[in-house]
Each structure stands twice: as C-alpha cells, then as structure tokens.
Design a protein around this nucleic acid. Sequence first.
DNA 1: GCTTGATTTGAACGGGCGTTCAGATACCCT
DNA 2: AGGGTATCTGAACGCCCGTTCAAATCAAGC
Lengths: 194, 194
Amino acid sequence: MARTTGSHADITRPRIRAAALSLFARHGYAAVSMRQIARAVGVQAGALYNYTPDKQSLLFSLLKGHMDDLLAAFEAERFLGPPEQRLEAFTRFHIRFHLERAEAVFISYMELRNLTEENFTVIEELRRRYEAALEAILREGRQAGRFTVPDTKIAALAIIAMLTGVNTWYRSGGRLSQGEVEAIYWDMVRKSVS
Amino acid sequence: MARTTGSHADITRPRIRAAALSLFARHGYAAVSMRQIARAVGVQAGALYNYTPDKQSLLFSLLKGHMDDLLAAFEAERFLGPPEQRLEAFTRFHIRFHLERAEAVFISYMELRNLTEENFTVIEELRRRYEAALEAILREGRQAGRFTVPDTKIAALAIIAMLTGVNTWYRSGGRLSQGEVEAIYWDMVRKSVS
DNA sequence: GCTTGATTTGAACGGGCGTTCAGATACCCT
DNA sequence: AGGGTATCTGAACGCCCGTTCAAATCAAGC
C-alpha cells in the first residue's frame, strides 16, 4: 500500500516552496539555481522534481498561490457600508496583507517577466481583478457624490501603487507601528479622492 | 599616434550600454548573458571587455548614470514659488522624466539586489537625496501652513511610489495623453497633502 | 518482518556562463 | 606607403546550469 499519511512529501513540499520563495525574493528567479533551493531544503536537486515539473512551474505556483490568497482574503473581508468606510477597509487590508507576506509580494512584482507568456496572462488577470475591486469602490463613491475622482481606473492604480510602496521601506520595530502607518496612508488616500 | 576621433569606441560604447539597458530591462540582469549583449551589438563577447571590467560594473554604470541624470535634471529645473507650485512642478517633472526613460527606471528598481553591497550603497544614497528633495517641499509647505501632512518622510515616499507607478501602465498612444496623466496625478497629490 | 510503493540519491547529459588573451584587423597619422 | 595603436576576433578556461533516471533507501500496512 502507498504511504498516505505522514509521508515526506507533506513536509518536503512546503519546505521547497518556502525556500524557493525566500531565495527568489532575495536573489531573483534567474539568479537562483535548483541546486541552491535543494541545498536550502537539505536535499539533492533531483528530489525537487518530485514536486515540480520544472523551475518555471515552481515560480508560477508561488505567484498563483499568492494571488489566490490575496483574492480569497479580500473576498473574505466583505467590505460593507458607505464608500468611505469601504475605502478605509481596503486601505488597511491592503497594507496589512502585503506587509504580512513581503517576500511573496516582492516576487509577484519582480518576477512577472520571468513567467512564460501563458503563465503571465493568468497572473495578470488575477491582478486585474483585484484592481477592479478597488475601482468599483471608487466608482460607487463617485456616483454617490462622496468622492471626487477624475478617472477611477487611474486612481485605483495610483492608490495601489502608493500602498504597495509601504513594503519598500517598512520594517517592524521601526519608528512607526503598523497601525500608525495604516492611519497615515488612510489619511492620504481619503484626501486624494475627496 | 592613437586614433582619437571617429574611433569605434565612440560608437560601440553607447551601443553596448543601450543594448545592455534594453536587455536587462526586458529579461533581468541575471538572465542576460554577456554573449547576448554582444550579439545585440554585433560584436564578439570578448570585445565588451574593452568597455567594462565586468558585467557587474556595466549594471552599476547604467544605474549610476540614471540616478545622476535624474538629480541633474531635477536640479536644473530650479523649482521656485510657493509650496503648491513647487509640488506641482515636482509631480509633473517626476512623471515626465520617468516616462521618458522607462527602461532605466525599471532596472533601477528591479536590479538593486544584483548590485554588490558597495555599489548598492552608492545608488541608495542618490535615491535618498531625491526623496529628501521632495520631503523638503512638503516640510516647508507644512511650516507655511499650506499642507497638512502627518509625516513628511512617509508622504514623500508615498507620493513617489504613486507617481512612479505610472510607468507600469502608461503607454504612449493610449487613452490618455501624458499631459492628462500629469493633471490627474497632480490632482490626487495636491489633495492628499491638503 | 516482509512487501511495496513513495521518496531520495548520485551521477550523468548537453549546454551556456563570465572572463581572458594571443593574434588578427582596421584605421589614423606621419 | 607604412607604422602604430585602438579595436575586435575566436578559441579556450573552469564552472555551474536545468533536467533525467536507474538504483538505493525508507516507512507504512499486511
């Protein structure tokens, strides 16, 4: 009989994913070899191929997983109430979610060009869906006369770029707590669409 | 006597830099080989080493050149007048300058991690100087009672992240002209610090 | 405790990497 | 016309790459 419980795969697979995520974030996909990932896991390079058909699929799986997590977490939040409240919830959610997974966020932006065209299309569509969710909030706020936004599509992209920028400088234990950072950014976001 | 005018170096050097810039932007520093760069220039790989001691120096030179250009162009603008006017000038300058050199901007963000520690420090310091220039505008505007900014340091980073985000979606010939984009972003920046 | 299949090893494959350098080439100068 | 040097070629160096696969190892169920 096959071993179904407690098999090494249950342990090795996440360790490979974690090692690949960390190494890709630190050195870049192209600069990291399968042997380096294997070494980080404590295994020979050949063993990785029990878990991924190739290096490209490993990258794609990490990015796809990250985007799926993002959309799932977003939808689980169920933003309710008036537009201002929903925009604030989005702002705080975005900062919190992205700070919690800095490495995944990093490679999701940096390694897009290392995806095959087919894989890139998939990730881009998921990202587009997330952007559309923010744009919907802005559009409804504008229709309700609560927001003044010349172009909701661009405003959505601008806000996301601004918020994601937190990841480039925030370090926990620094001058500001995460809550303070959220408050500062919410202040700017709120005013920028008022 | 040495050939001093019309030497091939005057032609080859910029072609190497242009090819490297373009290839690094498209595929990433680590994924591009010296042989690929040479092929794009129409030369053998060995010839590149008449112009750069090694691949790392070539990358650093491109990034350093970009940052020097940025600071030189910024200082040449001589932002004058009241804080609002200077902030608007900064906003439009940033968008214009960055859209004009999308490839250099791209690698200046993406390839920082492929710099040696020493080279990274140099680029980081130049970037810090640019950020400080924006922060100075915000700080003076706040002191003059024209801006409401809870944290000028973070506001500067947030604004720069928002503005640089234009590069990820803007394509000339698209729905909006560059002037329209500048106007939309200036509207958001202005309000965000009001 | 043996069988069986999941998991891993370790070696090999062809190929590309960054860099070096002796020799060939091309062009300016006298 | 010929000398001299800036520039380039082409081959070579040792090394690492992604991937494959037969054989070894391991652990669960009988």
